[in-house]
Amino acid sequence: MTEERPVPEVPPTVRLSDPRALRAYAHPTRMALVGLLRREGPLTATHAAELIGESVASCSFHLRQLAKYGLVEEAGGGRGREKPWRATALFTSWDTAAEDPAAAEAAGALQRTVVERYAALAQRWLEVQRGESPAWRAAAGVGDTVLHLTAGELAELGARMDELTRPYLDRLGAGAERPADSRPVLLVRMALPTDLPSGTDEEPEQAEEESP
Rank of each mutant, 00 (worst) to 15 (best):
A26K: 11
E210T: 09
G108E: 09
A32W: 00
E132L: 14
A191P: 00
V72A: 14
G80P: 00
V146T: 13
A119Q: 14
E205N: 07
S17A: 15
G108A: 13
L169K: 03
R5M: 10
G35H: 06
T88C: 11
T46R: 12
L110C: 06
P12R: 12
R5P: 05
T165A: 14
H47D: 13
G76D: 09
V7I: 15
L33G: 11
G175L: 03
A139C: 11
C59L: 05
A57M: 08
W94K: 01
S55L: 01
P184C: 04
T165N: 02
T150C: 09
R86W: 04
K68H: 13
T44D: 02
E3N: 04
A107T: 06
A87Y: 06
E105C: 07
W94H: 13
A75L: 10
E209V: 03
I52N: 12
G199I: 00
G70W: 14
G141C: 04
V72W: 05
G77A: 08
A120H: 05
R30D: 03
A87V: 06
E163K: 00
L51W: 08
R117F: 00
V115K: 07
V146M: 08
R171T: 02
M190R: 08
I52V: 15
W136S: 11
M190H: 05
R5C: 00
S17G: 04
R15C: 08
A89M: 07
A87C: 08
T46F: 02
T44C: 00
D95I: 04
Q129T: 02
L110V: 08
F61G: 04
L196F: 02
A106C: 05
F91R: 14
T2K: 03
P8V: 11
I52W: 03
A135P: 01
S198H: 10
G175C: 03
V146E: 11
E54G: 01
L22M: 09
D144T: 09
S93E: 06
A109T: 00
T13I: 13
S182W: 14
E4K: 10
L51E: 14
T165I: 05
H148G: 08
G199H: 13
S182P: 12
G53A: 10
G199D: 15
Q123S: 07
V34M: 00
L37I: 01
H62L: 00
A87I: 07
M31D: 03
E73P: 11
A109C: 07
R137G: 03
S93A: 15
R178F: 02
A104D: 06
P19K: 07
T200A: 08
V34C: 04
V128F: 09
T145E: 13
A140P: 02
R81Q: 10
G199C: 06
A155K: 05
R160H: 00
R130E: 15
E99I: 12
G143Y: 05
T145S: 09
T88R: 15
P12G: 11
S17D: 10
R20G: 15
A103S: 14
